[in-house]
């Protein structure tokens, strides 16, 4: 599905990612751990194709195509979706209208209901939404978009316990976790700090990012336990010694 080869990315002339390699197969969902400022969001934004994130070297392959130089909307139409960490508010654009614009065939009312978000249908997108509401708004839009590969930037931050469950279920739906593993085709990559969301959704593999590189990969639960026990660097030293 997605293959990242030796990817280096800079923002405003400052290099943030150094030779990242990552491969996510069809039907797989991966989690990405790492301290603040280590480049996790940069990786997602570079995959999404935000122009400020300049690819210095390496390439991004998606569904067998090199998308490294593709525009954001082309990538989205090819099947890449992203839940932003801090999305902007859009004045005058109602959420229910955005759902229709994203996908005229989407069943807006059902999607809104699933995320217990009906009262927000007539509100301007993200305008005056709380942290947790923003996350649900992102999930609603992704369920309308139905990407083949979904990226989630801290979908659990600022979300209360009841709603974390709803968001976890939405992620499972987006990544077809209700389907037998052999039948799954959709994939995902998510960033989480505390792993709360992993109690409600299934991740197949996890990676630790330090200083702009992926330095350790393995079972999500094992990695998270190690991080909790001995910190990011301790985890790497223990599980993936150089």
């Amino acid at each position: 599905m997605l293959e990242i080869v030796d990817l280096s990315v800079s923002i405003g002339g400052k290099q943030v990612l150094n030779g990242v390699n990552l491969r996510i197969g069809p039907g797989e969902t991966h989690a990405l751990f790492g301290p603040n400022g280590t480049g996790k969001t940069t990786l997602l934004n570079a995959i999404a194709g935000i122009p400020r994130y300049v690819v210095e070297s390496g390439r991004i392959m998606f569904k067998g195509q090199d998308i490294t130089r593709m525009s954001m909307d082309q990538r989205a139409r090819l099947g890449i979706g992203m839940a932003f960490q801090r999305p902007p508010a859009i004045r005058g654009l109602k959420l229910k209208d955005l759902i229709k614009i994203i996908n005229p065939k989407a069943d807006g009312p059902t999607i809104l209901k699933e995320l217990d978000f009906e009262p927000f249908a007539n509100r301007d997108v993200n305008r005056g939404f709380s942290g947790g509401e923003v996350k649900r708004s992102e999930m609603v839009q992704l369920l309308a978009q139905q990407p083949d590969f979904v990226m989630l930037d801290e979908p659990d931050s600022g979300v209360d316990l009841e709603n974390i469950k709803l968001i976890g279920e939405a992620i499972n739906q987006l990544t077809e976790k209700d389907t037998r593993p052999s039948k799954r085709t959709k994939s995902g990559l998510l960033i989480t700090h505390f792993g709360h969301i992993l109690e409600y959704m299934k991740a197949d593999r996890a990676h630790v990012m330090l200083n702009g590189s992926i330095v350790c990969s393995g079972n999500p639960k094992e990695i998270l336990d190690q991080i909790k026990k001995s910190g990011y660097e301790g985890c790497v030293a223990c599980l993936c010694p150089a």
Binding site: A48, F84, P88, I102
Partner: peptide, 11 residues
């Protein structure tokens, strides 16, 4: 930011 947000949705 708003432009990119909508473009990430395929517009």
């Amino acid at each position: 930011e708003e432009l990119e947000y909508l473009m990430a949705r395929g517009l």
